[in-house]
């Protein structure tokens, strides 16, 4: 019995330690999104949904996460979040981040933003257009 309790306490301790390490890791990475050279030309995204995501990101997200990096909010292009989780976060908001309901953003628009963020995280820039 004592052995089980000790094991349980040990497991709890390990989980707590892991949570602390993960927390610190996320915290430390929150301000260090990779910086790339500014674009030398006007670019468009390779798909309509990505372009739409880019426009929506600028309108709804970039003020707190300028360029996807940390500002008032955490950096959001330096974490391996799957699109589903990004969409969940946009819809529900977490912590101080407000939720964006379906009156503000349709399901398709939320998906477009999530797709664009994953695209940004992969360091892609888009396709050059004449200007």
């Amino acid at each position: 019995m004592e052995s089980n309790e000790a094991g349980s306490i040990r497991r709890t301790g390990i989980i707590f330690l892991l949570l602390c390490i993960l927390f610190l890791g996320v915290r430390m990475s929150s301000c260090s999104a990779p910086k790339t050279a500014p674009l030398a030309q006007v670019v468009e995204m390779p798909t309509e949904s990505l372009q739409q995501g880019r426009v929506l990101f600028n309108e709804y997200c970039a003020s707190c996460h300028p360029g996807g990096m940390a500002g008032v909010g955490l950096a959001i292009i330096n974490k391996p979040l799957p699109e589903d989780v990004i969409e969940f976060q946009i819809r529900n908001g977490i912590g101080v981040m407000p939720a964006f309901n379906d009156k503000m953003l349709s399901d398709e628009e939320v998906e477009n933003i999530a797709e664009y963020l994953v695209y940004l995280r992969k360091g892609k820039k888009g396709e050059k257009v004449e200007h």
Partner: peptide
Amino acid sequence: VLAPVGFKVVRVDVDSGIVEEFAVNKAVK
């Protein structure tokens, strides 16, 4: 703020509202 904001020059496509960096300091942050 959780990290410095601004301190650069950006350019804006006034048709789409897309903001891109133009002149910014070389650094990881």
